[in-house]
């Protein structure tokens, strides 16, 4: 199938009658996923969004339930979002991050109904990356600019149109009933050529990193790696695989709601005990936790690294800490950064 670029807005308008549609929207000098109310709001001419689209399934702040307490006890009202959604134009790295998050929210013992219900009702339409950014290193983590992990359909930008590849039954359901033209031989050849030429220039050699981390918890390397880190946690807020959260009550007296908010292992309060003891008392332990969680603990538990190589933590760090260099230092070799 094909979407001509000048017909994209109209196509999104059609989808809006059946789904909540989330698409990249320009905001000041960056782009973020927003729920759109008109196809013209969407822009697929972007590198990647500032904040990852994980928030569509796992919002930055989310009401779990509301309650009111009276003489008859508490009335509790669950708030589970059942709306059908489409995330349109998600990058392959971000789609893969949701597959990683599935491990957390559907673990060996518990299911998170908030995330999983949204996940069940959300169709992911990917947009391949013709020109990966200098901070992208997805191929080092098993992804790629046209990787289809987690996607229901993939769009390939061939200049004045998008060639649509349907990948799953859900993808088929989305595009059925729309009036898109079929892709011809020439379109398919053009898409293949685009895929051929897209290159991710930055590679990170991860061989042996896990083995090092298995034995390096007390290594003196951690004394230095974190030194310039401010503990601002922008790396975790902009990370598509970070999933830590806080649960708080937002209430007047005994009437209100229980809310969960994104939280971050980079903050000292995150692990502070009521007694005043803190198992991760300084930036060193917290920085180590972030690296260990992504590149060792997640591998131990789910057999995959909790990183998709999107590069947001590199782009947004106020002191230019670069995870590629950190990993290289851990591994004991020099990283190949931007060519």
């Amino acid at each position: 199938m094909l979407i001509n670029k000048n017909e994209l807005a109209g196509f999104l308008d059609q989808l809006m009658s059946r789904y909540q549609v989330f698409a990249p929207v320009k905001e000041a000098d960056y782009t973020n996923f927003k729920q759109i109310s008109s196809g013209t709001e969407a822009t697929l001419d972007y590198s990647n969004t500032k904040i990852p689209p994980k928030g569509i399934l796992f919002p930055q702040t989310e009401k779990l339930f509301s309650y009111s307490c009276g003489t008859e006890g508490a009335q509790v009202q669950e708030c589970i979002d059942q709306q059908k959604k489409v995330v349109f134009g998600i990058r392959p790295c971000d789609a893969k991050s949701l597959v990683l998050l599935d491990n957390v929210f559907n673990n060996d013992k518990y299911q998170d109904p908030y995330y999983l219900t949204r996940r069940e009702n959300t169709i992911l339409v990917g947009l391949g990356c013709n020109r990966p950014a200098g901070t992208c290193f997805c191929t080092s983590l098993g992804g790629g600019p046209f990787d289809t992990t987690g996607l229901d359909a993939l769009l390939v930008d061939t200049g004045d149109k998008y060639v649509v590849e349907i990948l799953t039954e859900r993808g088929r359901e989305l595009f059925s009933g729309t009036t898109l033209p079929e892709a011809g031989e020439a379109d398919r050849a053009a898409a293949a050529a685009v895929k051929e030429t897209a290159t991710v220039s930055c590679t990170v050699n991860l061989d042996g990193v896990k083995a090092k981390l298995d034995t390096d918890f007390y290594d003196p390397i951690w004394d230095g790696l974190h030194e310039k880190c401010l503990g601002c946690a922008v790396c975790t807020y902009t990370c598509p695989t970070c999933h830590c959260f806080d649960i708080v009550d937002d209430a007047v007296d005994a009437n209100g709601c229980r809310v969960r908010n994104w939280d971050a292992c980079m903050f000292p309060l995150f692990t502070l005990h009521g007694s005043g003891h803190n198992p991760r008392p300084t930036g060193k332990e917290r920085f180590r936790q972030r690296v260990m969680h992504k590149f060792k603990y997640f591998v131990d538990n789910y057999n995959v690294m909790a990183c998709v190589g999107c590069g947001r933590c590199i782009k947004n760090c106020p002191v230019n800490l670069d995870i590629r260099a950190i990993l290289a230092e851990i591994q004991g070799s020099e990283a190949r950064l931007d060519k």
């Binding site: 957390v104 673990n107 013992k109 999933h243 649960i247 292992c265 198992p279 131990d300």
Partner: peptide, 11 residues
């Protein structure tokens, strides 16, 4: 329930 990420000791 093993999701919010703060009580881990190693893995």
């Amino acid at each position: 329930i093993g999701m919010c990420g703060r009580c881990n000791v190693g893995n």
